[in-house]
């Protein structure tokens, strides 16, 4: 068994690209679900809309990179608004179903043959990240300590990604201790009560949905740039479900909960996956093949989500008195 490789990949996973992408997605979910009680199960679509916004502008239409970023952000805001208008008046369970349906609609459109000229069908889009890597201030080479390290491209993505995570956390921290955040938390508890106190509940929910979408969409940009491509199936419902798992793992309604949750989630996933693969190929485990390791990892995600909610719904860092799981 190659313990060094396992160690290196595991440690790198704690700060890696996936962790950044999922931390941003989960930070958005935390604003919507953790603080406001909005069961938005369409978070994947926000990442997708942002990633595709950038990719389509640059690679389909050949327009500048920065315009792609602006269009991606604007599309996310518009999408949040369009999604919010019909759904934010619905009960929590209906909201969950409708948002998941909306996200699937978006994914089906991205992968459709009818729009293949624009979105590239199931292959997605590539060749739009040139400008981004041209801006890379790190000269080519390997950066790191001992066996741990990243190439200059990955480092550039990570520096920017973690900067976005930091900015988002700061914004969430400032907002949630303000009266604005108080209204959101009150809406999570009982929106009729908030309405009776003269607050425009719909407007606050919309603001939360848009803010959560925008924070999540940074994850879409990071994904698109890190892998220099977007494919429709990356933005499926499971991305959203993992983001929820991460929020609950870290602790809902905690500023840093999703970030720590994302790190732990990916460390565990990589550690379990690599250890099992190594064990299988070294012959220690004989009842499964290396291709079966993938499913086992995600079975464990499901099992972990169940156990967390049953035994520690406040997650690792949450406050049990302050989570929205016992409400409708």
């Amino acid at each position: 068994m190659d313990w060094l490789t396992i160690l290196v990949t595991t440690v790198e996973a704690a700060v890696g690209v996936e962790t950044v992408v999922y931390a941003l997605a989960a930070l958005g979910v935390n604003i919507q679900f953790g603080y406001s009680g909005l069961l938005n199960f369409g978070q994947a679509a926000f990442l997708g809309v942002a990633g595709y916004g950038l990719a389509v502008i640059v690679s389909t239409f050949g327009l500048p990179f920065w315009l792609g970023i602006v269009v991606g952000l604007a599309s996310v805001v518009v999408f949040a608004f369009l999604l919010g208008v019909p759904t934010l008046k619905l009960r929590a369970d209906y909201l969950a179903i409708v948002t998941i349906a909306a996200a699937e609609i978006v994914r089906l459109i991205f992968r459709s043959v009818a729009f293949k000229d624009v979105f590239g069908g199931s292959d997605g889009r590539r060749a739009f990240s040139g400008t981004f890597y041209d801006m890379n201030p790190f000269p080519p080479g390997q950066y790191g300590i001992g066996p741990f390290g990243f190439s200059e491209r990955v480092l550039w993505v990570l520096v920017l990604g973690w900067f976005l995570v930091g900015i988002s956390c700061l914004a969430i921290y400032l907002l949630m201790k303000s009266p604005w955040g108080r209204v959101l938390k009150a809406i999570r508890e009982d929106e009729d009560a908030v309405r009776s106190l003269g607050k425009n509940v719909f407007s606050y929910k919309m603001q939360a949905l848009i803010l959560g979408g925008v924070v999540g969409c940074f994850g879409g940009f990071v994904y698109a740039l890190a892998f220099a491509s977007v494919q429709p199936d990356v933005f499926g419902t499971e991305l959203t479900f993992y983001a929820y798992t991460i929020v609950i793992l870290g602790g809902a309604a905690r500023v840093f909960g999703p970030v720590l949750g994302a790190s732990i989630f990916w460390v565990l996933l990589v550690l379990v996956g690599n250890t099992l693969s190594e064990a299988v190929s070294a012959g220690y485990i004989t009842f499964m093949t290396t291709t079966q390791v993938g499913p086992v990892r995600f079975m464990l995600v499901g099992l972990g989500l169940i156990l967390l909610l049953v035994f520690r719904p406040q997650g690792i860092f949450g406050d049990k008195r302050e989570i929205a799981l016992d409400a409708r």
Binding site: A92, F241, G294, V296, G302, L305, L309, L325, D326
Partner: peptide, 23 residues
């Protein structure tokens, strides 16, 4: 267990079963 809690638990069950079937 709260209703939203159960809803999210069912997502865990779905993931578990789906990947068990894949396995």
């Amino acid at each position: 267990t709260g209703l939203i809690g159960m809803m999210i638990i069912s997502i865990g069950v779905a993931l578990f079963l789906r990947y068990a079937i894949l396995f």
